[in-house]
Simulated scan of single mutants.
Amino acid sequence: MLDVPEVADGAHLWRIARDSGTLDLNSSYSYLLWCRDFAATSVVARGADGLPVAFVTGYVRPDAPDTLLVWQVAVDAAHRGRGLAGRLLDTLSDRVAATHGIRRLETTVTPDNTASDRLFTSFAERRGALLSREVLFAGEQFPGPDGGHEPEVLYAIEPLTAPAAS
């Protein structure tokens, strides 16, 4: 079942993100806040027990109110390979388009994240939308002892329309 996240889901989202092995893990506090403050622009998939097994978090950009920025997409390992991330993304973009009038979706993807590249490329294709890519944040802009963060490439998808019938 696809649903709007609740504060009680925050710890589960943090665990799914941690276990993904690819996402930058935010603090557990940030996932709790996300489920409180950005629930309307996020979506979770619930397993048979009612607990989240996947999520997409996003927000409407304050300086671009026609744009949904997708922050993170994660699917628990036991539920991968079933098209769940694509369904979550379609559901979220349709819902936010209806409630906020968005016409554009943005996200960032590191060059080594082939799963996210495929997800957003196929999303654009299903929507018959244009997909542009440009570096938003260069690797050297990231602070910290690692100094080895990949660049974050901005994917911009527009115009948003309903998926083409298959």
Rank of each mutant, 00 (worst) to 15 (best):
L25T: 10
S27R: 05
I157D: 06
D19M: 04
N26T: 01
P143Q: 08
A129I: 00
D66N: 13
L68D: 01
L89G: 01
P163Q: 10
G86N: 02
T91V: 02
E106R: 14
D19R: 11
F55T: 05
V70G: 07
D24E: 10
P163S: 05
Q141R: 09
A85W: 06
S42A: 02
F120N: 01
G50W: 09
D37H: 12
D3R: 15
D24L: 14
L68H: 05
E134V: 11
D49S: 04
V56A: 15
F120D: 00
E106F: 00
V153T: 13
G83F: 06
T121L: 02
E106L: 11
D19G: 11
S132W: 00
Y59D: 07
T67W: 00
A164E: 06
G86A: 11
G50Q: 12
H100K: 14
L51Y: 06
V43Q: 04
P143L: 07
R127K: 08
Q72E: 07
N26S: 11
W14I: 02
L33C: 12
E125M: 03
Y59Q: 11
T91W: 15
F142E: 08
R103W: 03
D146V: 01
D76P: 03
S116D: 00
D37C: 12
D49P: 03
Q72I: 03
L105S: 01
F120Y: 12
G83T: 06
E106Q: 15
D76R: 13
D146M: 09
R126Y: 04
R103V: 13
H149A: 12
S20H: 07
D76A: 15
F142I: 05
H79Q: 13
A45G: 09
E140Y: 08
A45V: 06
T114R: 11
R36V: 02
Y155T: 00
D66H: 13
R103A: 14
V70D: 00
F142P: 06
S28W: 03
R36G: 05
A85E: 05
E6M: 14
Y29I: 02
T41S: 15
A97F: 01
G10H: 05
L25E: 15
A129H: 11
T107C: 15
S42N: 04
D63A: 12
L136R: 14
H100W: 10
Y59F: 14
R15F: 03
T41L: 05
V7W: 04
A48N: 10
A124V: 01
